[in-house]
């Protein structure tokens, strides 16, 4: 299956069941485009019912604050480490084409309907620094602390970037792709045993059995 066909299948399903603001492909695309235009963002990605708005990192605070007027609820802030070499898990699909970077994500939602968008900005791998949202959106403070200790991203203007989860003397940023998972070093991936085909039956698919006709619980 390709991305496009999956995407359209999901969008159609959403439209069929009739969500409150009738999200269809064109509606979400139009919504993303209107956000990009009104906020002066770099562009947008709409996939799998998820709207991502790309923002320049020097206009991060300004854009989020402007968007926060309509999308009132600050939902979360986090980051992704795009790295060519990974200590844990699978590397990215096309390693050679990958542009090594951090992505900082911030999700804002509307409380009037199902609207919402994830704002994305790109930071360099070396010395990643971005202005803090904490002075204007106080709830971002803890999320930035989390991103700071997990990824080592500096949030300029957040006065309280002390570790949130980890002990004070902990060294390293655990969610970096370069940070090893010690339990994985001593024990191989346990999921490998699960992907063997079953001894009988076709290995491709599980055929769903239909239920008996005279089902006693059906009412």
């Amino acid at each position: 299956m390709t991305d496009a066909s999956d995407n359209s299948a999901v969008e159609t399903a959403a439209a069929d069941t009739g969500s409150s603001d009738a999200e269809t492909v064109s509606d979400l695309d139009a919504y993303a485009a209107s956000l990009v235009e009104s906020l002066g963002a770099l562009g947008s990605t709409v996939e799998f019912d998820t709207v991502r708005i790309h923002v320049a990192n020097d206009r991060w605070v300004e854009t989020i604050n402007a968007a926060n007027k309509d999308l009132e609820l600050f939902s979360w802030l986090s980051a992704i480490d795009w790295s060519k070499e990974v200590e844990v898990g699978d590397p990215v699909d096309d390693v050679d084409a990958l542009d090594e970077r951090f992505e900082v994500l911030c999700r804002l939602s509307s409380v009037k309907n199902g609207d919402g968008a994830i704002f994305v900005t790109v930071l360099p791998k070396v010395d990643p620094t971005i202005a803090s949202l904490e002075p204007t959106i106080a709830g971002a403070g803890w999320h930035e602390r989390e991103a700071h200790e997990m990824f080592g991203i500096e949030f300029d203007g957040n006065p309280n970037l002390i570790p949130l989860y980890l002990p004070d003397d902990f060294i390293g940023n655990p969610l970096l792709k370069s940070y090893p998972l010690i339990s994985r070093e001593v024990k191989p991936f346990p999921g490998d045993v699960d992907v063997e085909p079953m001894p009988q039956g076709d290995a491709d698919a599980i055929e769903p059995d239909t239920l008996p006709e005279d089902e006693e619980d059906a009412s």
Binding site: M1, T2, N7, T45, E47, F48, T50, M198, D204
Partner: peptide, 12 residues
């Protein structure tokens, strides 16, 4: 599918 192939993408 028995072995789940999840396509590339990001979803919330």
């Amino acid at each position: 599918p028995r072995v789940l192939k999840v396509p590339k993408g990001q979803v919330y």
